[in-house]
Simulated scan of single mutants.
Amino acid sequence: MSESGRHPTRQLLLLGLAQAVLFVVGALLGRWLGLALGFDAFGAGGYSNSAIFGILLIGLGGGGGVQLARAWYTRKYGSPRD
């Protein structure tokens, strides 16, 4: 952290990149888990219960990836909000 108490731009860019990558990885894992459980988010049946649960798993996976990236950054560099 710099003397002004703000994180350097390079570190914040690293946080953004980590969040973007882990969002995509988490969403893909959610998609694959949904398919393994029989919930197809992109099925041809419209918004059936299966599709809704598939969409939910994709969203939870993506959100979990973002939170994992933020936890890693906070543990390594401290909170970016300080």
Score class of each variant (00 low, 15 high):
M1R: 15
M1Y: 15
S2G: 07
E3V: 13
E3R: 14
G5R: 11
G5A: 11
R6K: 12
R6A: 13
H7F: 02
H7P: 01
T9L: 13
T9E: 04
R10K: 08
Q11W: 09
Q11R: 11
L12C: 04
L13N: 10
L13E: 05
L15N: 08
L15R: 07
G16H: 15
G16F: 13
L17N: 03
A18E: 05
Q19S: 04
Q19L: 05
L22R: 01
F23K: 11
F23W: 14
V25R: 02
V25H: 00
V25N: 01
G26C: 07
G26R: 00
A27L: 04
A27M: 10
L29K: 04
L29A: 11
G30F: 07
R31W: 12
W32I: 13
A36F: 08
L37S: 11
L37T: 14
G38E: 07
G38N: 06
G38W: 07
G38K: 09
F39P: 05
D40W: 06
D40H: 07
A41P: 01
A41Y: 07
F42D: 10
F42Q: 10
A44R: 13
A44H: 14
A44F: 13
A44G: 09
G45D: 10
G46I: 13
S48I: 11
S48D: 11
S48R: 04
N49Y: 09
S50R: 10
S50I: 04
A51R: 12
I52C: 04
F53H: 12
F53D: 12
F53T: 12
G54T: 06
I55W: 15
I55E: 14
L56D: 06
L57P: 10
I58R: 05
G59D: 08
L60I: 14
G61V: 03
G61K: 00
G61Q: 04
G62I: 05
G62A: 10
G63P: 05
G64I: 04
G65D: 03
G65H: 02
V66A: 07
V66I: 13
Q67D: 13
L68Y: 03
L68F: 03
A69Q: 01
A69I: 00
A71P: 01
A71T: 00
A71L: 00
W72D: 00
W72E: 00
T74E: 13
T74H: 13
R75M: 05
R75N: 10
K76R: 13
K76W: 02
Y77T: 02
Y77H: 15
G78E: 05
S79P: 00
S79F: 03
P80T: 09
P80Y: 06
R81T: 10
